[in-house]
Structure formats: C-alpha cells, structure tokens
Design a binder for these strands. Structure first.
Length: 741
DNA sequence: AAGGCCCTTCTTTTT
DNA sequence: GAAGGGCCTT
C-alpha cells in the first residue's frame, strides 16, 4: 500500500522527513493526526524501525486511541509493543514499573484536584493556619507551580513569611501524599524526571528503549514535559514534535508554547515543516479566523488556505440576554435541521465557561431537542461517583486516608467529626493508617487496644466499618472490578441511600450504574488499571464520534474536534475574553487563541452570538461586544454586525443618530431566502416605548430608551439615564414620562 | 450525630 | 445561583 497517496507536498515532506529533530507546525484542519500516524507507519514500513522502539505521546486518551486505531487500519498487523499514551498515563506506567525507587508502592493511587484539596485542608488544620487567609486552591497553585519548575519542598525559596508558610504546607502536603501512597497529577511527571536525574542507568535504559519519540500538541507541553522529552531523546535525537502555537490554550496549567522556540534552540539542526493547507473549513471561515489570530503579537504568520472557496457568511447575533441567545441557537438548529441540510449531530455549541451551559441546556429542553453535554469532570466530579470510587480506592490502597474519610460515614453510620478526629489522632500516635486502626477494631472487637479510646457506640461503629473493609480487601483478589463494586454497593445499601423518591435520586443511581458500565467494559483488567483509567480521563475523551445530537462543550474541550455547524456563545467582554485576562496581556493572548480554536472548528457555518445583558453570580449587568468580533472584517459577516456600546451620557447627546440595530428585526439565519425571525417577541399589547425615545424618571432623571421588550403583560424598558447610567425598569412600575416620540 | 437553614464565596479553562 | 461552611435544632 502506498503510504503517501493523497498527501500534499508539505504533508509528504513531514511524513518522510529524515530522522532527527523535527518540528511540524500544523495549522488547524491541516491533517495533523494523519501526518503523525503516517509518520509512525513510515518509520515502521519504510525505515524498518521496530514498533516497540517507538514512543508516541499525546495529551488525551482520545487522541492516543484514535492514533492506535488508525495505525491498526494502516498496518493491519498488531502494533507489537508500540507505546502510545498520554504523558500522565505513560508516567504512571513507568513509575509503577520502577516503584522500587520510589517512596510509594506500585499500588499508588492518583489524587485528583479534589483529593488534593482535601489533603491541603488537612494540612491547614494541622498547621493551625487561618483558613480565611490561606485558601486550599491558592496553596495548591503555588505547589503545582513549584513542582512544574522541578522545585522540591525543601528547595522551595522562602524569602518572606508568606513564602515560608507555603513551603511548610508544601512539605507537609508531600509527606501526606507519600503516607497516603498517592501521587498527584504533577507527580506523575516530575517523579519520572527526578528518577532519570538520580539514576542515570534508568535514563539510559529508557533512552535506549526508544529510537523515536513523537509528540502531539507540542505547544501544550509544560516545563516538566519538555524536560522529559529532551532527556529521553538526548542521545538519539529523534524527537518529532507536532503542534501549533496558535492553538496553545493551557497556559494556566503550566503549558508554555515558547517550548516551540526552545526546541529550536536546543536542537540547532531542527527541521521545521509548515502545514498550511486546510481540509476542514471554508475559505471564508479561515479568513475570519486568521483575521482574529493575526492580531496576536509576536507570532509566525501562517497563511491558511483551502480548496473550499467561499462559503456562507459568519452570522453574528446579538440577543437580549443569555436565554434569548440560547433560543437563537436552538431555533437556528431546528431550522437548519428541518431544511434537511444538517443532521442534529452536525451541530456544536461552544462556550468559555461551563456555567454558560445552563442557559443553553434549558433552551434545548424547552424545545424538546436532544443534546449531549461534554464534561468528564462533571461525571467524575459527582458525589455518588466520587464516593463509590473512594470505596474502590480504599480497598485497593487502604493507606488512602482521603478516601477513607470520605466514605467512612457515607451512608451515615454514626461516625461523627469527634470520632474521626480521635481516629486520626490514634492512628498518628500509633504510626499506623486510619484503615489499620479500624481493621484492628473490627477483628479484635472490644479487645482491641484501641477500643478504650472510643466510646462504646463509636468503637462499635468503627469496628463494623473495619470488618467490611477487611472483608473487601481479602475478597478483592478473586473478584472482578464489577463484582467488587456490586459487593460494596450491596453491603452498604447504596441504592436505597441514593434513591429518595425524587428524580435526582434516580439520576444519582443511574450515574452509579453508568460507572458500573464503565467497569464492565473494562472487563478483566485489574482494579489498579481501572482506577488509573478513571483518574486520567479528560473531557475530550468523552466526546463520542458518531453523535446523534448537538453537542455542548467548552472551547477548551472543543480543541481537536470539527463540526459542520458551530455556534460560539457569550462573545462579550468579560466572558470571551474572560474578565480574569484583562490585567494580564499573556492571558489576553490566550483568550484570542481560544477564540481562534473555536472558530476553526467549523467546517461550513459559524455563528457568533452575544448577549446584551448577562448575569454573573446571579445578578445581571450590561455587557459590551467582545473585542474579537471587531477583528473580523465586516465583509465576512452577516446578521447583526457588532457595534460599540455607547455610554449613557454619549447616548444622550447622540440620540438623533442612534444606530442600535433593533433587536427583533428579521434575521436570515440560513443564508437562503429571508425567513421569519427565530423567536418572535413575546406577544402582548402594543409596546409603549421604543428604542431612541427620550423619557424622564422621577428619581433617575432624563434618559433614552435603549430597548423595550414585552414581559408577560408588562413591558421591560432599558433606559440609558444621563445621570445614573443604564437601568432596566418595568413600565408599569417605573412611571416613565415620555418627552418626545 | 444528623439534618436543616442561612451565610459567604465564587468560577475560567482540566491532565 | 450553587455549593460549601458554620450554626442551629432535634
């Protein structure tokens, strides 16, 4: 079979590049995954490299699985030891293999963010810190940052008092991780690097093992990941990196797209190949996306092009609020679907923050349209799921005190805060884990040396839990993950505990069953593998390929995906770009890249939506159109072109030339003949106020009507007052006096 | 010990 | 506008 058939010249160049350090800068939709897999196939088939001498690293399990799948199709045969996986899963695998060198055993568990927080809270208590002044999340950020710079707890610089506190927290946190036989996400990477630095023989072994190392999404690597790659490839120098700095959106997680530049410095003979031909979007969408990203300072310009000339204009829609914004989306989907041009699975709705999904979901539910929400965090973050996983983790690794504390009284067993404090104290005093103590109480009953420390009732409750735990840990070897899960569920009466007759209760139990399904799919693999798998799933892993319903997801989760029709909602200053990026130019650049990523997901049609009024933390405020909207040339846009909001005082002076597009005018959504506006203005009596009218309010003074809309039988009027700014009023209550009209 | 109520705080994005 | 923490009652 001809591996190179159907590749364009740049792709061919990338696939057949001479061994040696190579950087492929791949624009969106340029066939990056294809190049990466063909490259591996090329190494095996044409250069005769043994598959087990190849290491391919990705960021998500989904990307890894996709590559495996494609290679299987390409090469037919089994992949005979080819290593493909995420940075974290490969790290975990190697660390289990080399656990003899570590302070933890090979059964270590992986602590996720909430476990980390629980641990830090414990530290805050132990060190008697003011929990108002030291927030777990802030402390964890410090720790993670230090870890990513390969700074250990004892090397942590402490020039100030605050830094001294951080250092102590870091030290104790790390001790507790070891005591729990646990690693956090960062540890999965830094332990490998440290191991390599401390044991040159180990490093040499891994350097020898892999002739070729390939990395996907190279722009998302952080300092540790880059160090790992560099050390691994220091001898053979066959590092093949694929990435796109324009799509770097994980800075907040330590990713540094400047690693792309570092690569050029560290490997002076680096071959760089640019992939600019796009096989996804229309030229119009590419032009719009390039217009946005070209405003990004200090980047290498790429000229993306496609054979797909022209294309439908990008629709800009300005809604009154997020509910109407969501309704626009639903209406457009309904319409395009009814016209038969697109299946429901062809649509995607993207947003900056997860909180924005609520309004969209509600609109879908109201329209009785199905939808799929992406977010593993959401599933694995649920209480019932975390609880059940904590039981499994505890059985797997009884040293895991975070899990023990989580489940020891869930469902309630009469073990309260006092008892738990005493339990921890007892364990610490005896140099044991809490699990050891409860198991002894269970086995020896009242004769246990620990029994006298507790009240009779508490001791009995603890003993009971200890017996259960003992039973599970000894039964564990003979049971599959599903069987163990069933045993636990049955024993603790979890179903009855979760289902309380409400719909939510049923949903909770359904979630448990879903996790059970995951375990079932996992088959015969061990508990350890199962726990690792669920600890390392990403949001992007949960996007199923053949969708039957529109998909709702964050812009981050959308990276790497494509859809015929894309809606990006919340194009408001403060949302995208996010408020938190206003002060920091680097963060602002990342918002721009995020916008670029979102836009380039669209194959045929792109809708950009914003809401004039948006609620944040409960109450609403007026927002301005995102700066990114203004970067797109007008000629590429249709619908309501963005306009700068006019301040109340300015509006007052410019009333005669007011140019707000009337909300509610007919918008042609599908690009065909004019069609009725998707959502009719709520019917009601004739509106009393119109945009541009001058009105007077008893206490706010004079102003101009920005907008008026029906609300039940009443009318909601938004007025820009000269003295007090923009206010929203109910016509019936405000008693506005019409000054002209 | 447990459950209910009110208060605060907060949200970016996720391996 | 949700979720967690603190404080109250049973």
């Amino acid at each position: 079979m001809d591996l190179l058939a159907g590749l364009n010249p740049q792709q061919t160049q990338a696939v057949t590049a001479e061994p040696g350090p190579t950087l492929v800068l791949a624009g969106p939709g340029s066939g990056k995954t294809r190049v990466l897999t063909q490259r591996i196939a090329y190494l095996i088939n044409h250069l005769g490299v043994a598959p087990y001498r190849i290491l391919a690293v990705t960021f998500t399990n989904k990307a890894a699985n996709e590559m495996k799948q494609r290679l299987q199709n390409l090469l037919g045969a089994d992949l005979r030891g080819l290593t493909i996986g995420t940075f974290h899963s490969i790290g975990a695998r190697w660390l289990r293999r080399e656990a003899q060198y570590l302070a933890v055993t090979r059964d270590f568990v992986i602590f996720d963010t909430s476990d980390q927080e629980a641990l830090v809270k414990q530290v805050i208590q132990e060190l008697n810190l003011d929990d108002k002044k030291f927030r777990p999340s802030a402390l964890l950020a410090k720790i993670s940052h230090a870890k990513n710079e390969l700074i250990g707890p004892d090397e942590y610089p402490a020039p100030t008092y605050a830094a001294e506190i951080h250092k102590r927290v870091y030290q104790r946190y790390q001790e507790l991780l070891v005591a729990n036989n646990a690693l956090d996400f960062d540890d999965l990477l830094i332990y490998v690097v440290r191991l390599f630095r401390e044991h040159p023989d180990l490093l040499a072994k891994y350097q020898r093992a892999f002739d070729h190392v390939l990395v996907d999404e190279f722009q998302d690597t952080n300092t540790v990941q880059y160090a790992l790659l560099r050390e691994l490839t220091a001898v053979r120098r066959n590092l093949y990196a694929v990435g796109d700095p324009d799509q770097s959106v994980y800075r907040w997680r330590g990713a540094d797209y400047r690693n792309v530049h570092k690569l050029k410095e560290d490997f002076r003979d680096l071959t760089t190949i640019l992939l600019e031909q796009n096989y996804r979007s229309t030229q119009l969408i590419l032009d719009a996306a390039m217009a946005v990203i070209d405003k990004h300072p200090g980047r290498t310009r790429k000229q993306l092009f496609t054979q797909r000339r022209g294309g439908a204009a990008i629709y800009v829609l300005e809604a009154y609020n997020e509910d109407e914004e969501a309704r626009y989306v639903v209406d457009a989907i309904t319409q395009l679907n009814a016209e038969g041009r697109y299946q429901l699975g062809d649509f995607a709705v993207m947003y900056r923050t997860n909180a924005q999904s609520r309004a969209v979901e509600e609109a879908f539910v109201r329209a009785r349209l199905p939808y799929k929400l992406v977010g593993a965090q959401r599933f694995y973050g649920r209480k019932e799921i975390k609880d059940l996983l904590a039981y499994l983790r505890l059985v797997h690794n009884p040293a895991d005190s975070v899990s023990l504390l989580r489940v020891i009284n869930t469902p309630a067993r009469g073990i309260g805060a006092k008892t738990l404090e005493l339990l921890q104290e007892t364990a610490r005093g005896a140099g044991l884990t809490a699990a050891d103590v409860v198991r002894d109480l269970g086995e020896a009953g009242p004769k246990s040396v620990y029994a006298p420390r507790f009240g009779a009732k508490a001791a009995a409750a603890l003993a009971n839990f200890g017996l259960m735990l003992q039973h599970w840990t000894s039964a564990r070897a003979e049971l599959s993950v599903v069987q163990l899960m069933d045993t636990i569920l049955e024993r603790i009466g979890y179903r009855d505990f979760l289902t309380d007759g409400t719909e939510e209760g049923d949903e909770r139990w359904a979630n448990v069953l879903e996790l059970r399904g995951v375990a079932q799919e996992f088959g015969e693999a061990g508990l350890s593998d199962f726990l690792q798998e669920v600890a390392l799933v990403s949001d992007q892993d949960t996007v199923s390929e053949e969708g039957k319903a529109p998909i709702l997801l964050t812009l981050h989760a959308a990276k790497g995906l494509e859809f015929p029709v894309v809606f990006i909602v919340g194009l408001d200053e403060g949302v995208l770009p996010h408020q938190r990026s206003f002060e920091d130019p680097e963060a602002m650049h990342e918002e721009r890249r995020l916008m670029y990523v979102g836009m380039t997901r669209a194959k045929d049609q792109l809708y950009l939506l914003r809401a004039f009024r948006r609620s944040l933390y409960g109450d609403a405020s007026v927002s301005e159109a995102s700066r990114f909207l203004f970067d797109i040339p007008d000629r590429l846009l249709a619908g309501q072109k963005p306009h700068k909001q006019i301040r109340a005082s300015e509006a007052y002076q410019r009333q005669t030339t007011w140019d707000t597009p009337a909300r509610g005018r007919s918008v042609n959504l599908s690009g065909g003949a004019a069609t009725p506006k998707p959502s009719a203005r709520p019917s009601g009596g004739e509106a009393r106020y119109r945009t541009g009218q001058r009105v007077k309010h008893a206490s706010f003074g004079e102003g101009i009507v920005i907008e008026s809309r029906g609300r039940g039988d009443d009318e909601e009027v938004t007025v820009a007052f000269e003295a007090v700014g923009i206010k929203r009023l109910l016509a019936s209550a405000a008693n506005l006096q019409l000054l002209q009209g």
